[in-house]
């Protein structure tokens, strides 16, 4: 079976990018806090915040890619995503984190911590999915 290529890093992770929260407030990407995601999801009629715990981090199919296995939500559903090593995830209570924080900082000037097994990331699911 073929797997999809890793997702390229989108422009909004660049330091200084303007992010609009659900209540209309504008913040820079580097200034976002855990509460911003929680409060925005509370307002949203379609999306809800879920916790996704990093279970495994393996090498991806290309040199700059990693496959991250998450355990998602109360159901602990196993979900794998393949991303570039510099792709940042938002860790609850910690902030932006990637598998290669040096590269994230180099490419996007976004300060990052190292993403590790056990970290709990902010993720989204659809409301009323179950």
């Amino acid at each position: 079976s073929s797997s999809s290529s890793p997702v390229a890093l989108p422009p909004f992770f660049m330091r200084g990018s303007i992010i609009q929260l659900a209540d209309g407030e504008l913040k820079r990407v580097e200034d976002l806090k855990t509460e911003d995601f929680i409060q925005s999801a509370e307002i949203s009629s379609e999306l809800k915040i879920d916790s996704s715990t990093v279970e495994r981090i393996d090498s991806g199919q290309s040199p700059n890619a990693v496959v991250i296995q998450f355990s998602v939500g109360e159901l602990k559903a196993q979900v794998c995503v393949e991303v570039l090593v510099e792709y940042p995830f938002f860790v609850f209570g910690q902030g932006w984190s990637s598998c290669c924080p040096d590269r994230t900082t180099q490419l996007f000037e976004l300060s990052c911590a190292k993403l590790c097994v056990g970290d709990v990331c902010v993720s989204l699911t659809l409301r009323g999915l179950r």
């Binding site: 992010i19 990407v29 989204l124």
Partner: peptide
């Protein structure tokens, strides 16, 4: 001369991965 440019504004949810758990019902 630097012309003023409109700054792109991105929605908050675009920063968060959408991880839909597999439903087993």
């Amino acid at each position: 001369n630097v012309e003023p440019r409109s700054v792109p504004v991105f929605p908050w949810h675009s920063l968060v991965p959408f991880l839909a758990p597999t439903q087993s019902d």
